[in-house]
């Protein structure tokens, strides 16, 4: 059984913006990264999958449950941490966790142990009783990652979980996310994050699935191509911030290296651009 299955999923907002355009997606039990540029439709997709947002049309099954018909049963099995969620000012990290775990119907007597363990894991324990207003942006973000870890649901959705975190905090979060292997779906536009965590990557652009596979599969699909910076040539050419970028066959690209162009091996970063033309 697929963990996620969408068929012709469409989301058109009230202002007419088409965020998802007949998206067909199948995801199974891996750490899955949903990758895409800003506005690609990642957050909209995650919000629909986690029952926060109604789709316009199409069908969606999560853990085998229809998100429209079986919503109550599904909600007991998933956790979703929205990208823009903010800590409630005067409330402490410990209280945030309490609040969330009680909403998830955790037994009161078990909550203290779970919170302590999770806060320690993410380096928040020493700040557990400090009003969150007084914490740094990264620490506030970690409160919500802690919630997801503590809830330990069948499936966890994390929308841009490491935005605003320093490198050490980011590594702490990655280490924690790895413990959710097989039951976490993450959106990101950080390639480093996708490379480190992603067992499966789904690249979305303009509300449609462009590519899907393991990082090595996706890189393999780019095999034989190289990036030439400062050159505008061929079908796969782009202008990014005033710089021309062209993707050429390796044999051809190498010749440009001799002429002083900057020629590079492809990396996952290049998926963003190539995803648009494929």
């Amino acid at each position: 059984m697929d963990v996620i299955e969408t068929n012709n999923l469409v989301k058109r907002y009230r202002d007419g913006h088409l965020a998802l355009d007949r998206l067909n997606l199948r995801l199974d039990k891996k750490i899955t990264m949903i990758l895409g540029r800003n506005g690609a439709g990642k957050t909209t997709l995650l919000r629909i999958l986690s029952t926060q947002l109604l789709p316009t049309s199409g069908t969606v099954r999560v853990l085998g449950y229809d998100i429209m018909k079986d919503v109550k049963r599904l909600r007991g099995k998933i956790v979703s941490i929205p990208q823009e969620v903010e800590a409630m000012g005067i409330i402490t990290p410990y209280e945030h966790m309490q609040f969330y775990l009680l909403a998830r119907e955790f037994p009161k007597e078990k909550i203290d142990g779970i919170i302590t363990k999770t806060l320690k894991q993410l380096g928040l324990y020493d700040f557990r009783n400090k009003p969150s207003d007084l914490l740094s942006g990264g620490m506030k973000r970690k409160i919500f990652v802690s919630m997801a870890l503590a809830a330990d649901a069948e499936l966890t959705f994390l929308d841009e979980p490491t935005v605003g975190l320093d490198p050490i905090s980011r590594m702490e979060v990655w280490s924690a996310i790895k413990k959710l292997a097989g039951k976490v779906i993450i959106t990101t536009h950080y390639m480093e994050e996708a490379k480190i965590l992603g067992e499966e990557i789904a690249l979305i652009d303009s509300g449609r699935l462009k590519m899907q596979g393991s990082p090595s599969d996706l890189l393999r699909s780019l095999k034989g191509l190289m990036r030439v910076e400062g050159l505008s040539k061929g079908k796969m050419k782009f202008k990014i911030g005033g710089t021309d970028i062209s993707y050429l066959k390796s044999s051809e690209a190498v010749s440009y290296a001799d002429r002083g162009y900057d020629v590079k091996q492809l990396d996952l970063e290049d998926l963003f651009l190539l995803g648009e033309v494929r």
């Binding site: 919000r47 109550k72 909600r75 007991g76 998933i78 800590a87 969330y100 909403a103 998830r104």
Partner: peptide, 17 residues
């Protein structure tokens, strides 16, 4: 405020609450 600013309602929407 909890819905629009802090997005806490979105956080809770994916629970049985």
């Amino acid at each position: 405020n909890l819905r629009l600013q802090w997005k806490i309602q979105d956080l809770l929407a994916a629970t049985k609450l």
